[in-house]
C-alpha cells in the first residue's frame, strides 16, 4: 500500500467497513473469531483453532466460513474463547473451547445449527463503535 493521504484513508475505511470480517454485521458467511491473547493461547486457543480448521475442511464448508483471530475477550476464567456467528442463529461466545469442544462446535453449531450445552458465556459489553453508528442509522446488529 502506498502512503496515504486523508482522502485515500477515508476511502479505504469506507471499503474496509463493508468488507472486513466481523460478527457485528449480518453476513451470509459463518464467522468464527478466536481469542488469541497470551491467556487464550496458554489455555489452548491454537489447538482449538487447528481443530476447527480441520473439521471445517472435513465438512467441506471452507468457502462459507471465515476464521480470524482476535485479542482477549476479557473472559480469562473460561479461555480459550471463541465467538461464532452463523446466519440465522444468535451470535454467541463459547468458553473453555478445548480441541474436543472445538470439533463439536463445527459439527453441532455450524453444521447442525444447535447451540452447545454448558459453554456459552455472556457477552460482557455492547460495542460502542457500532452502537454510535447504529444510532446514526448506519447499521450494526446490536
Amino acid at each position: 500500500m502506498a502512503k496515504m493521504t486523508v482522502a485515500t484513508l477515508n476511502e479505504h475505511r469506507a471499503t474496509m467497513k463493508k468488507t472486513y470480517p466481523t460478527t457485528l454485521q449480518p453476513s451470509p458467511l459463518t464467522r468464527i473469531v478466536v481469542g488469541m491473547g497470551t491467556c487464550g493461547i496458554a489455555a489452548g486457543a491454537q489447538e482449538a483453532w487447528d481443530e476447527m480448521k480441520k473439521s471445517i475442511a472435513e465438512f467441506g464448508i471452507e468457502a462459507s466460513v471465515q476464521m480470524k483471530k482476535t485479542g482477549c475477550m476479557g473472559l480469562c476464567q473460561v479461555e480459550p474463547t471463541v465467538e461464532i456467528a452463523v446466519p440465522g442463529m444468535p451470535t454467541v461466545i463459547y468458553g473453555k473451547v478445548t480441541a474436543e469442544v472445538a470439533k463439536r462446535l463445527v459439527r453441532k453449531h455450524i453444521v447442525e445449527k444447535t447451540l452447545i450445552d454448558g459453554h456459552i458465556q455472556d457477552r460482557p459489553a455492547i460495542d460502542i463503535v457500532a452502537y454510535v453508528k447504529a444510532s446514526e442509522g448506519e447499521g450494526g446488529t446490536r
Binding site: 479505504h12 474496509m16 472486513y20 470480517p21 483471530k69 482476535t70
Partner: peptide, 25 residues
Amino acid sequence: NKQFRIVLRNCGVIDPENIDEYIAR
C-alpha cells in the same frame, strides 16, 4: 451491559495484526 468498553473497544473484535480492521473500526 454491566461493562462499558472504550479502551477495550476493539479487543475481541478485530484481528490485531491487521491494520485494515482497525481502520474499519
